[in-house]
Amino acid sequence: MARDLSSSAVAREPLGVRIGLRVVTIGYVVMLVGWPTTLVFKNAFGDGLSSVSDALTDPAVTSALQLTATISVIAVLINLVFGVGISLLLVRYEFWGKRVLSTLIDVPLSISPVVVGLALLLVYNGNDGWFGPTLEKLGFQIIFATPGMVMATVFVALPLVIREVVPVLQEIGDDQEQAARSLGASGIQTFRRITLPGIKWALVYGVVLSLASSLGEFGAVKIVSSNVSGETQTATLLVQAKYEGFEQTTAYSVAAVLAFAAMACLVIVSILRPKEQSS
């Protein structure tokens, strides 16, 4: 009897149920994710490698990819700094409005990126936005320029670092930080030598997720970009423009580059994960 109880419930499911569950799960993922993604690559390389390399060396494409890379890197850096700051604030300090802040951070997860774009437009546009005209007089253009697109991307990827770091900070507690303080370390020294190594892997994971999400951001950027080819057209915007302009190979090639970058991010994460557990 005792032996029967100790074996897990899952293992005791009838064979048919187990196989059925596997087929359904695998089928679901293949039909929804695997197959469509494969087709993107297939279409990109359908006309041969040379047409892909032609497509990817088109100045409009290289400029779009560069812009996407620039925006993503800036957005990730901003989210990294503020993400760590906000996480520390949320975990280590008690203050009025903490729960409101915590809820606000999740807003980008639930709100449509298009709404984010419109909201930024309302505040920062150069004609009748709240800050837009003033900033434009001072020589800063936000909307229809890189700063606006960076802001949109930062907004959408905001929770990713925080949601990775907060649970780890909670788990490691503040004992080690207090010990460091009592041993003479200043706040900055404690952060650099104790806190940062403790949340290192969570940060890496959060950054990779943010990067993947930033590379693929479309909706919010679409609203705040003027979508001028070679100037304010990001890779995702270019994919849509090229697709609608019947330049299928270019569209698929760039889409494949984006998909590849996102997958590379995920592979990096899955390689990093076991290290995190064993440490």
Partner: peptide
Amino acid sequence: LPPQKRNVGFVFQHYAAFKH
């Protein structure tokens, strides 16, 4: 005075070892 200026040694119940 902040803790780092008091020159006290503190030992915690759960060790507070620097894990890394």
